[in-house]
């Protein structure tokens, strides 16, 4: 043990080597560079969430994988969460923080129910609430390590609602949104189809589902932290269908047999 009054009780450097502060960059580490560090890094993580608006509402999808680094740790995790009557929150990033968000939103729902007459929580309320929570936590240097999509209906206009919010409290909305790898791979595909307000107004449920499942397939091809098993939520007024255990279908692999050598 080190008996130097400034390092009392620490393992001796001669015996154990110098302490590496970067190994455990947790809050107990007092470094002159970091005034305070709380949350460190995501550990058990979920990958992309995709969502689009369509004629009658919003369609959202997320696969069922929770990764532990590159290890596919849990293959049955539900990352789409229903809140209130017709809102879905889809979360990527740290799963333990997602579960915390689940609990926060459940408490919010209970408080909303204290008014015995009506359950009034709509998508825009939930999105605003989440953005406040995320921003608060990032301001404490202790962020919830997620990016979320909130899909549903606006309380005032009754129009389909789809917005993004992430660990910094950043928010934006669009007709098609994605988190994680999806924002690189899926958004170009989604935007190609949904290139105008009219395109959204004319998109049927079937077309929407087809578009989303096509993107889930591309993600499975190209995202190394994805799974071919996913859940799909179809959000219509006062009606949410959460379809679980879907698989990517009609994948294209056969062409691999024609490929020899490095290719030219």
């Amino acid at each position: 043990m080190n008996h130097d009054p400034f390092a009392w009780g620490r393992p001796l450097n001669e015996t154990y080597g110098e302490y590496n502060y970067n190994i455990a960059n947790a809050s107990s580490v007092t470094s002159h560079r970091n005034p305070k560090m709380a949350t460190q890094q995501p550990i058990v993580t979920g990958s992309s969430v995709l969502a689009i608006k369509f004629k009658d509402g919003v369609i959202m999808a997320a696969d069922n994988l929770a990764s532990y680094g590159s290890l596919a740790r849990f293959d049955n995790v539900e990352r789409l969460l229903q809140v209130g009557k017709d809102t879905i929150v889809g979360c990527s990033g740290d799963i333990s923080d997602f579960q915390k968000i689940e609990r926060l939103l459940d408490d919010l729902e209970i408080e909303d129910g204290y008014d015995i007459e009506n359950y009034e929580l709509k998508a825009n309320h939930i999105h605003e609430y989440l953005s406040r929570v995320f921003y608060n936590r990032r301001s404490k240097m202790d962020p919830l390590w997620n990016s979320c999509l909130v899909g549903g209906f606006d309380a005032d206009s009754g129009e389909p609602f789809l917005k993004y919010v992430d660990l910094l409290g950043v928010t934006y909305g669009a007709d098609s949104l994605a988190t994680g790898f999806g924002s690189h791979l899926a958004i170009p595909l989604l935007r190609k189809k949904l290139d105008s307000d009219d395109a959204v107004k004319n998109l049927t449920e079937e077309e929407g589902i087809k578009l989303i499942s096509e993107c889930m397939k591309v993600l499975y091809y190209r995202d190394a932290r994805s799974l071919d098993k996913y859940s799909l939520a179809i959000i219509k007024k006062d009606d949410v269908k959460l379809i679980k255990g879907l698989r990517c279908e009609d994948m294209s692999w056969r062409f691999a047999s024609g490929i020899r050598g490095y290719g030219n």
């Binding site: 550990i43 058990v44 532990y68 740790r73 849990f74 995790v77 799963i95 579960q99």
Partner: peptide, 10 residues
Amino acid sequence: YSIPIGGSIH
């Protein structure tokens, strides 16, 4: 129930 580091529950 599995509780890996990070504190999620499965």
